[in-house]
Each structure stands twice: as C-alpha cells, then as structure tokens.
Design a protein around this nucleic acid. Structure first.
Lengths: 340, 340
DNA sequence: GTGAAAGCGCTAACAC
DNA sequence: GTGTTAGCGCTTTCAC
C-alpha cells in the first residue's frame, strides 16, 4: 500500500527529486520513461515513486504540455430534454467508448447539455482547455451548430446521421437505408398502411422516416402516418396508447424509431388486444438486448454499437494526429424475429 | 457567433487584458464576478470576453486554485469484466449523476477500471490531481480496497452496500431487507423451494441473497439454492438455461439478483415451457423500466435510482465542504406485478 | 479599485 | 546524462 503517512507527503516531482538526490527535471524524464536517463537512476527513481505512491499532477502536466489526455464526450439533449442520457442505445455506446478510450490511454470527460439554454454549449466545452478532442453523441437538433464548430476545430467526431456535403466528420448507421429495410419488411409481411412511431425532430430519426417513405412511395402505397411521441418511457407509453386508439383499424404496420419505443408499443398493443404480428406488424431499430426478450421477439434493424464506438475513437485519434478523415457510414442489418 | 478568426485569437486572460486596457489580474477578478471590481470595467471586460468567445483555461485555473470542479466517477469491474458499464441500472444512475453534478457546477470524469489489473486503481484516480472528489459506482469485489482509501481521503462516496462498522461513506438500498422482501413475496405466492439467480461475489448481491436466506431460515424452509451466472446477457442466457434444466422440478421460486437477469430468466422459462407464475414464481430487483414490459410483468424490489444519485452528490458536496457524513441507506420497496 | 509579481506542478529547451 | 531555467495560463496576495 502506498504510504501517505509515515514518510511524509511526496506530492510533487520536486519532493521526489529531493529524496532521490537528483533534479526535478531528471525525475520528470525518468517517470516519462525517456531514453536519455541513465537506466540505473531511472529504475531507482521509479522505485521511490512507487514506494511513496507518487502520482504526477495531471493538471500541471496538461498545462505545460498543452495536452490533457482527456477526450470530451458530450450528449446534447436538444429535442427531448429528459431522455437520452438514460437511453439504452447511447449508454451502451458510451460504455464502449469508455473501453476504447481507456485502451488508448485517454480519460473521458462526460457532459450532458441542454442546448436550448445556451447556444454556446460546444464552444464552451472545446474552449475549456480540459480536453484534447471531443466526441458528440447524437446530433439532436443541433446539426447546424455542429457544422459551424467543425469549421474551426478539427479534433471532433460526431455520432449521427450523414448528410450529403456536410462538413463535420460523422460515424453512424445509414439510417435512410435502415428505414427502407424496415418498411420493406413490414410490407413483405403483409402490411400496407404504415405508421412511423417516434419523433422526427432528431435528424437520425427523420432519415429513418424518409427511408421508409421512399419504399412506400416506390410501391405506390399510401404515405406513412407519423405517430409522434417523446422518447422517455413514461410519457411515451400514454402517447402510444392514444395513437393506437386514434388509428385503430387504419394502420397495420408500425415502424418504431427505436427498439425502446417498439417494446413500449408492444406492451400497449397487448393491452389493447391487438395481436402481433397478425393484426399489426412491428419493426424496431437498434437491436438492443431487449429486442430478443419481448413477446413475441422483435424484428428490428441492427446497428453495430461496438463497431460504432471503435470507429469514433479511431477517427478521432487520426484527426488528433492531423489526418483528414472521411465520415464512416455503416450498413444497417435487418434482423427478422417474430413481429414482422 | 464567437469570432475566432477576424479579431485574432484571444486565448488568454492576458490577451483580453491588453484589449481591455487593464491588467490580467483585473480581468480575472472581473470574469470571476468578484465584488471589488468597478462595475463599469467589469461589464466592459465581460462584454469583450463574450464578443471574442473567450473562455478561461480550466487547467490553469485548476492548477492555481487547487480545485478542478471535476468529480470523478469510477466503475470498478472486479467480478465481471465485460458487464456493468452497459448494465442498465448503473447507466441510469450515471445519467442522474451527470444531471445532479451539472446542476451543481461540476463536470464529470468517467473511468472504468478492471481492478484485477492494478490494485492501485483508486489511488491513481484520486492522485491524478484532476478531480476534486470521487464517486465509486458499485463496490464490486473491492470493498477492502475502498476501505483502505477511505482512511486517507475524505471526498469519496460509494454506491453500494452498507456493512456494520464500515469506514467509507456509502449510499445504497438496504439489500438485505430487499432480499427478505423478495423471498417473503415468493413464499407468500406459494413457493417453498427457492433459488437465487446471480453472482454472489459482488457484495450487494451477497446481501440480497443473505436477506432471502434469513426469511427462508426463519420459516424453516429448505435453504436457497444458488444459480450462479455472469451478468452479461449473452453468457447469462445459456447459464440460466442450463440451471433451469438442472433444477427442473426441484425449485418453484426464483429470486433474481437484478431485473435484467429476471427478464432473461423469463425468456428461458418460456422457451422451456415453464409457466410463470403457476409453475415458477419469479421476483427481480431494481424495478428498471423493463420490469413493466416483460410478459407477464415482473414483480420486483424497487431501488430509487434518482434519489440515490441525489444522495451521492449531496453527501459528496458536504464532504467536500469538510463535513463528516453518515452513510445513507434507503429502503427498498416491493412492487407486486404478475410473476409472484 | 487596480497593477505587479509570485507561484500552482510540471516539462522542455538549453547548458554543461 | 543531468541540472538549471523559463514558462504553460491562471489566481491571489501585497502594494498603492
């Protein structure tokens, strides 16, 4: 156990230098494993450091080197304040990001912002001097704000939707294609009057909706009805119940913007006595663990979260190294289970 | 939009001072809203700062003030490496922590550690100089390590289980009581041969198990069988399937360590044709959103996550202010639905 | 009410 | 190889 008590506090590199009988500079070099230090003095210094449980102050180091080894991760909650930070998809992504960043030697600074309150949210984070780069999880309704920032700040990568000609580097699933897949599956399963369940304010969701609309239009089916909901489970449940009642008999297939909404929808369908998939087909999006556990198991469009996290970190590190990077658009994958 | 280009970079307080025609010290005071600055110069300086999109460097400020306004949140993954960071309960707690800390003006530095690899994980985080205090999410199998650290470091609060006489400040549910409630419910529903599903390595889970064992012993029922599983969904599913097959007919009530496991278990029970609650009673723990959505809906023991997060932050801030604080043990609450 | 100056703990020239 | 020195950008005495 590192000894903080008996031997007196060894808090600074200077304390350590005094004990080792060398200069602070040498200690710094030894601890950094620099080659120019005598192997003998180096091991000695490292031993003393270990013995006293010494850890260099990262703030001081960061200030001097102009590099903090911290990556900021920010979740903008523009369109739905109370949601998302507990959204299973984002949280899983965050978990994988933590893994990847740790592996690369970076710490992770998490910030949750409500952009409505300050337009300045992203500049503030970047300008804080605390982070070497930033990963934005979800564009929310802040696409333009992110574009603005991207012009003057390179080490930024965003999880979200890719739009032709955009300037910020994004990693994400091809939402529009995913939307097409979902609609096509619903139609293949026999549905003809489709509805989209969710909120199209967020650009990712809008793209999913647009993709579904593509398919429907191409086949000459009636346009898709939007069943607008919030994303937080508590509010969404009632909203879904109301929508289902309002549209009873006029729709026979639902494309839910996320698996979470799909699962909620399934519960409401059950309680209203609507049989799935006989009376209503249902397709979700994400392929979260819950998709396998609903009754009946959920047909959904899979996003590869782990690959997404890897992509985000990989691209960010390359940008940090000065490279220019293209966006990474990953293919969605239809997972057919029992709801459509 | 803050102008980084035309007016030249205003990165430091000194740049700003030059433009405003005052000294750096005055700028610092003005920006901090200190009273002793002339109201006029103060507003002027703030205006210039805003105009140029200036933000003070937090690293420098932190170094000088010996205070970073960052709270570390660490998730030790001792007993089950691959789990937890994506565990719904911890993620929800993390979301609420982010909210609470933000409200109090703190940033959140997230770290996920695998203690097996270095015994030093907590000291390293604390000694980094990057954080003013630390919240540990889950004791995992690191109870002793946390106790050691608590002796020399005050601003730490831990989410987890409370043990008589422990030295670190903890916030958590009364797991033992929760375990008793779960077992009693199973028994009241007609079960007599109980099993505990999960991993008792983590102390919280061990306490839940012990509580259940209390009830069973008091009523003279046969001791509870342990059905050991990992917590990651992929591995747990097979393990549960095997356990159910092995114990077919010898148990009639299952207390799952978490709702996630309970939901998984429900899926396996269904696929093995075991009727719930007729042939098997089931009780979970946590009352996550999923508990309402399983079929049939899950009877479970509720932990108040939002209150937990508030408690953690509140106690940490008080400790940061030098106060001594007691641990906060919150009462669990039985939520009866349809599985027992 | 404001300026000057010292220094938080570290790193990286620059000497030798 | 190692010591010395000058800051990184900010805050805070201490003067005035």
């Amino acid at each position: 156990m590192p000894d903080r008590d008996t031997k007196g506090a060894v808090r600074t590199i200077t304390d350590l230098a005094r004990i080792a009988g060398v200069s602070p500079g040498t200690v710094s070099r030894a601890l950094a494993g620099k080659s120019l230090v005598n192997i003998e003095t180096r091991t000695k210094i490292q031993a003393i450091a270990r013995e006293h449980g010494f850890r260099p102050n990262q703030m001081a180091s960061g200030l001097r080197r102009q590099k903090t080894d911290v990556i900021g991760v920010v979740i903008p909650l523009g369109h739905d304040t109370r949601q998302q930070i507990s959204d299973a998809f984002f949280m899983t992504l965050l978990g994988h990001l933590a893994d990847e960043l740790t592996r690369e030697g970076y710490d992770l600074m998490l910030r949750r912002v409500v952009p409505g309150k300050d337009a300045d949210w992203l500049d503030r984070f970047i300008g804080s001097g605390m982070i070497d780069g930033v990963i934005v999880i979800g564009q929310s309704d802040q696409f333009d704000r992110i574009e603005d920032v991207a012009d003057g700040y390179d080490p930024m990568v965003v999880w979200g939707n890719h739009t032709e000609g955009q300037r910020h580097c994004v990693v994400g699933t091809d939402n529009r294609l995913g939307g097409r897949m979902a609609a096509e599956r619903l139609i293949a399963a026999g549905a003809t009057r489709l509805a989209f369940l969710g909120d199209t304010t967020a650009i990712e969701f809008a793209a999913r909706f647009a993709g579904a609309q593509d398919s429907v239009a191409r086949l000459g089916l009636p346009p898709i009805v939007t069943l607008r909901t919030h994303l937080s489970p508590d509010r969404a449940s009632e909203e879904i119940a109301r929508h289902l009642a309002d549209h009873a008999g006029t729709i026979d297939g639902i494309f839910a913007a996320t698996d979470t909404l799909a699962a909620l929808c399934l519960t409401e369908l059950r309680s209203q006595g609507i049989a799935v998939p006989d009376d209503m087909k249902l397709v979700g999006f994400d392929d979260l663990p819950i998709a396998r556990q609903t009754v009946p198991p959920l047909t959904t469009v899979r996003q590869d979260i782990a690959a997404g996290a890897q992509g985000l970190v990989d691209l960010l590190l390359r940008r940090l190294a000065g490279e220019e990077t293209e966006s990474l658009v990953m293919p969605p994958q239809l997972v057919v289970r029992a709801t459509a």
